[in-house]
Design a protein around this nucleic acid. Sequence first.
DNA 1: GAGAGCATGTAAGAGGTTACATGATTCC
DNA 2: GGAATCATGTAACCTCTTACATGCTCTC
Lengths: 187, 187
Amino acid sequence: MSLSHAILGFLRQQPQTGYTLKNEHFDKSVAYFWPADQTQIYKTLDKLVEQGFATSEIEFQSDRPNRKVYTITKQGKVELERWLSEAIEPPMYRDPLLVQLFFSDFIDRETMIAVLMSAKAKHEECLAALKAIDIPAVSKCSDYEQLAGRLTLELGFKSKQAYIDWLDEAIEAIKAMEKKSKRAAKR
Amino acid sequence: MSLSHAILGFLRQQPQTGYTLKNEHFDKSVAYFWPADQTQIYKTLDKLVEQGFATSEIEFQSDRPNRKVYTITKQGKVELERWLSEAIEPPMYRDPLLVQLFFSDFIDRETMIAVLMSAKAKHEECLAALKAIDIPAVSKCSDYEQLAGRLTLELGFKSKQAYIDWLDEAIEAIKAMEKKSKRAAKR
DNA sequence: GAGAGCATGTAAGAGGTTACATGATTCC
DNA sequence: GGAATCATGTAACCTCTTACATGCTCTC
């Protein structure tokens, strides 16, 4: 499970609480490829302790709620490195838009085109958000860690762009078939 | 939920059993963008009946197990058309490989490159499987239904290719940084 | 006085996967 | 005799999401 390992990765950098993991790490650096829910982070931290991959200590605070600080164990480091080195099966990408398109013979052509255009707007928005993230270009990264982070972004650019290009082509292809069938109907 | 609607889409074409849905439809036409488990198909069919979107009738067979044939209702047709016309939020694509890359500073460069190359092999295999599917090119589709099916495939080609290209670039970028840091170490 | 920030959690549900059960017939 | 096909299901589990609960402090 990748969430456990992402948490181990952050704990490997420094001991943390569930709160800081969520607000300073997941919501910042990896949100665009592995968003994580607060509830799930807390549950997974419990599991990591059970498995012996992390330990927790309560830090008492007088003016604020106490914090539970998690630290990675030796076993946790071993497990992290094992998982990082493993060849993982690429996950399935399930896209409802493709289901809609596949069965779109049951709705109007214009309606389907509107659905595709709305999807295009959303993907463009998403691409713009990715482009707004401020990390130096691949050729200008100063160290490996930065490069690794940049490369994850780079995939976002590429795949969003490919998706948008495909949407354009799909819209054109549908319009072209519409014209063809109207001409055929006139004869 | 897209699975319900995919099932409604197939039922809209003709009444079916869970078995034919799985073996003749899901495992054939939509498997590459919405694979479905047998268990889940049966569960979802029950739910569709509960919701009034389908009805079921048992067909007795003497030499084989009885079949439960599901038929879409008027309500089901309305629901299908509503959903097909709806603008849906693009789903999040969570990719463990990006988590691995993001934290790969904790493992050897060569190990990370091996992980990336293994991913490349798997994506290439997947692309080859998509290319083996026999549907006429976009410009040669004879009707809308065929075109819609072809377009879903087309996205597969594009996004797999983008992924493979990215993998090449990522591997090159990591190798380039390695060389740079080795040169720096010599001075 | 209202809302944001700090900090941890419970409960319930949706969607998907894996393993297992049954039992007749047909093909090699 | 063994495997594949036909056909439907149960039970348990994993991952992720949503809604809700608590309670103190600081800032506007």
